[in-house]
Design a protein around this nucleic acid. Structure first.
Lengths: 142, 142
DNA sequence: CATTATTGTACGTACCACGTACAATCTCAG
DNA sequence: CTGAGATTGTACGTGGTACGTACAATAATG
């Protein structure tokens, strides 16, 4: 197979970002295959564990997602018995999410796996580089 | 709506990467809506323009994609009359891709739009920061 | 009290990424 | 030079993510 130079494409920052993200996603997927969780699903479980009673809109805002996308995630997790929904007392339009005990247990395992995954990712950088990278990335989405 | 703290989630580098990538993707999508091209489609057209005659495997390797994913992209572009395929002379298993004239014209427009998009992205950084960010990102996917 | 905004629901669309199985072709060891 | 294994392209399928739109129930506001 001929080796193709990417050439000018390598100067495209958006593409670098995409490739870096893709590599991390792939590793995450392999690492979490046994838990059966994706990055987004872990994020949802994590936030719900930290803030029991939150609603669709809270999740969507915290994770920069569409409301429809958010609900697709929540529904899948609910179907697996990891999350439950109950009418919110304060506002009868809202539905409060929380974890089931099964969801809490899985989240704990997931957090441990996230630590390993993050170690794999972060071992490329020293402390100063890591702080720099985090700050530069934050400028993009904030 | 209650404002939910992301808390420990903000220390997850993978999530920052994902959010940054998401923000860039969203801007790209809006910016390219009139051309009807996605980031990946532009990448494929660009590489094909630079290396006429390349094959499925070349594209997949250069863009870190699965062969099946690559072909889905190529087929869609072929159906729109932007790319053509012809049997390769050197290896009769291979199929050589190239751009149609219509594809070349669209690619030129896309390159101009990419420049604008990249300006939007890069104006967050000075030259030194940009070089740093590019280098740090490259460590992840290389 | 009437209008407007918010929240959740229920559809649909599109893109991307990967897996598997298969046939044609090439390569290389023997 | 022949047969085994590797490579290439094809044709399916699955799942996750992301967004749009239209609608009903409820809350907030004038």
């Amino acid at each position: 197979m001929a080796r193709i130079a990417r050439g000018p494409l390598d100067t495209i920052l958006g593409l670098r970002l995409r490739r870096a993200n893709g590599a991390v996603q792939r590793h995450f997927g392999e690492h979490f295959a046994d838990l059966g969780l994706t990055q987004k699903q872990v994020s949802v479980l994590w936030l719900t564990g930290d803030h029991p009673g939150l609603a669709q809109t809270d999740l969507a805002a915290a994770l920069d997602m569409d409301r429809a996308t958010t609900m697709a995630l929540v529904h899948a997790l609910e179907k697996r018995g990891l999350m439950t929904r109950a009418p919110a007392l304060s506002d009868r339009r809202k539905i409060a999410f929380s974890l089931t005990s099964q969801g809490s247990i899985l989240l704990d395992k997931a957090k441990a796996a996230v630590d390993e995954h993050e170690d794999w990712l972060k071992r490329r950088f020293d402390a100063a580089e890591l702080a720099t990278l985090e700050e530069l990335l934050a400028r993009i989405y904030r």
